[in-house]
């Protein structure tokens, strides 16, 4: 089924946003996280990666984010083999946006500054960075909390800040690792709606979750078991 989505991308004449070919990831000590996994995600698609703990979901995301590299196989992102990308910092800054389970906001700087810091090193001036961060916070309904510290926000609000931060450099792909893992149902629902809106703006969203209900809210759910794609479900 996953192949059909790869075909869908081809039919549309677009390169897949993400494509993994026979990817193996073996950690030191011999733990096999991904076992010849192949996957294709079309442009502007919202895909949920689900599966039990330790099945390799997060590893998959880390490989796409270039935070780790595969033992064998190839990870393609927007037509580029990641192993050939020399400036991974640039890649992580501009090509992908990352949202973690633990929001990983810096606690001693304001919400606004947390969004701004990922724009250092871009061509934006200090004023433009500020303006862009405010716009993003407005998009996640947090413009009123811009000057607060992350510790003064609820879990759901922090995660929305993390999403705003991930989108700061207008990435083509948003990668979210268990973004709702620590949230109540209402907050999780809100985050999912936000991802839907992000997808609607043309960003490919890949979300890892162990929650099957939330996974079903994505366009497609890929279920991983023991490092392989076990099933693929089109939700809409």
């Amino acid at each position: 089924m996953s192949e059909s989505f790869g075909l869908r991308a081809s039919v549309a004449g677009e390169e897949p946003a993400v494509k993994l070919d026979d990817v193996v990831k073996r950690y030191p000590g011999g733990v096999l996280a991904l076992d010849r996994l192949s996957l294709s995600v079309a442009q502007k698609e919202f895909v949920a990666i689900s599966g039990p703990s330790g099945c390799g979901k997060s590893t998959l995301l880390h490989l796409i984010a270039a935070l780790d590299h595969p033992t064998s196989g190839t990870v393609w992102v927007n037509g580029r083999d990641l192993s050939t990308v020399r400036d991974l910092s640039y890649y992580r800054r501009h090509e992908v946006g990352l949202v973690f389970q633990l929001h990983n906001l810096l606690p001693r700087i304001s919400v606004l500054a947390n969004v701004e810091i990922v724009m250092y090193g871009t061509r934006l001036s200090s004023r433009e960075r500020h303006q862009r961060a405010m716009e993003l916070l407005a998009e996640v309904d947090l413009e009123g909390r811009a000057n607060r510290l992350p510790t003064q926000l609820s879990g759901g609000e922090r995660q929305r800040v993390a999403i705003a931060r991930a989108l700061a450099n207008e990435p083509k792909i948003l990668l979210a690792d268990e973004p709702t893992g620590n949230l109540d149902a209402e907050s999780a629902q809100r985050i999912m709606e936000l991802f839907g809106r992000v997808r609607d703006t043309g960003v490919t969203v890949i979300m890892v979750t162990h929650d099957e209900v939330l996974a079903s809210m994505a366009d497609r759910t890929e279920r991983i078991e023991r490092g392989r794609i076990a099933s693929s479900t089109v939700n809409r």
């Binding site: 984010a65 935070l67 910092s89 640039y90 890649y91 992580r92 800054r93 501009h94 990352l98 990983n104 810096l106 810091i117 990922v118 250092y120 090193g121 931060r165 991930a166 450099n169």
Partner: peptide, 11 residues
Amino acid sequence: LLRAVGWTRRR
């Protein structure tokens, strides 16, 4: 985190 979100080593 800063490295993960794209900060260079130089920065």
